[in-house]
């Protein structure tokens, strides 16, 4: 556990270095932030205000010391603390990510099970062909098509925004209102497609592997019902890879909702990231990336704990040491 924690700290440190210097290398934010008509003095003052007149290693040192006390700096463009900006946008992204994972799980596991149990049926072949599309069609194109069909042609669902939100535990959420749902459905579906395809294939492969095991045959010989065999004996065995993937993909979905959020103008973190990159707003970019890394570390931890719950052969101590 301790080793795990140190590794994570190391990863965070390296990431902060890479992003900090990477963004510096891209360009000078002052060129974008300052009014094009400003004179040399104004520019110099702006540079000094943002602390960009100091040498890079000093800038990094300042960033690092204040980061350790929980301050990741203020946005260059708005002056609001970067973390605050991100946390404002986070609920929207989390909601979108959770909705898309829910769609992927609720549809993916049953479809994968079906395809695994009846691999030769026409429906199973249809499911598998569909999953290939889910893998290979680019997200942005599918997003555009969804808007085209459901918003433009059919006019069923709104193409952009979050819709009506309700405050739940101090956070604005969409999924409690009908209007919010209608706004959520298209972007969540768009984001879910890849993971839906992934879960279908994963579940199908796991099912086919488990179904030929002796313990399934033994369960049959005990006279158990099909629902018991599939619902308990098969599902519990294939849950281990599924939980891993769901965990990791949940992280990815949050981190890379960028494309979907841009297309559907969903006011989440991904949209914030794109805007920040356009303005070379370094504190926000760095804070975003570090937050995402932290999130991946935490998700991995949760996945390990779930493992030991699902698979009695894995003890938590081993899992901490082995990875």
């Amino acid at each position: 556990m301790l080793r795990r924690l140190m590794q994570s700290t190391g990863v965070l440190f390296v990431m902060s270095l890479l992003v900090f210097f990477g963004v510096y290398a891209i360009g000078n934010p002052v060129d974008i932030l300052v009014n094009p008509n400003a004179d040399q003095q104004d520019i110099a003052r702006a540079i000094a205000e943002l602390g960009l007149d100091q040498p890079l290693y000093l800038q990094y040192w300042h960033f690092l010391t204040s980061a350790l006390s929980g301050d990741l700096g203020r946005s260059f463009s708005t002056g609001i603390p970067a973390l605050e900006l991100i946390f404002q946008r986070m609920p929207a992204t989390l909601e979108l990510a959770a909705a898309s994972m829910a769609i992927a799980i609720v549809l993916g596991i049953p479809l994968g099970l079906y395809a695994g149990l009846r691999p030769d049926s026409k429906i199973a072949k249809g499911i598998m062909a569909g999953s290939i599309l889910g893998f290979s069609l680019p997200t942005f194109w599918v997003g555009l098509m969804l808007i085209m069909v459901f918003s433009v042609w059919l006019g069923w669902l709104p193409p952009t925004g979050r819709g009506d939100t309700v405050e739940l535990l101090g956070v604005q959420v969409s999924f409690l209102t009908l209007d919010g749902w209608s706004h959520l459905l298209l972007p969540a579906t768009n984001l879910a497609l890849f993971n839906l395809a992934l879960l279908i294939r994963l579940t199908r492969a796991g099912t086919r592997e488990v179904m030929v095991q002796d313990y399934i045959r033994f369960a049959r010989a005990k006279g158990l019902s099909d629902s018991r065999i599939i619902g308990v004996h098969v599902l519990k065995n294939i849950m281990i890879p599924i939980v891993t993937i769901v965990g990791l993909e949940f992280g990815s979905v949050i981190a890379f909702a960028v494309v979907t959020e841009s297309i559907f103008a969903w006011p989440g973190m991904g949209k914030l990231l794109i805007d920040s990159i356009n303005q070379l707003d370094r504190p926000v970019i760095v804070a975003y990336v570090l937050l995402i890394v932290l999130m991946f570390v935490l998700i991995n931890l949760v996945v390990d704990v779930l493992y030991s719950l699902l698979d009695p052969r894995i003890r938590l101590a081993d899992a901490g040491g082995a990875r």
Binding site: D214, F218, N237
Partner: peptide, 8 residues
Amino acid sequence: MTLNPVLR
């Protein structure tokens, strides 16, 4: 192989 590894 006959007992399910994940069930008690």
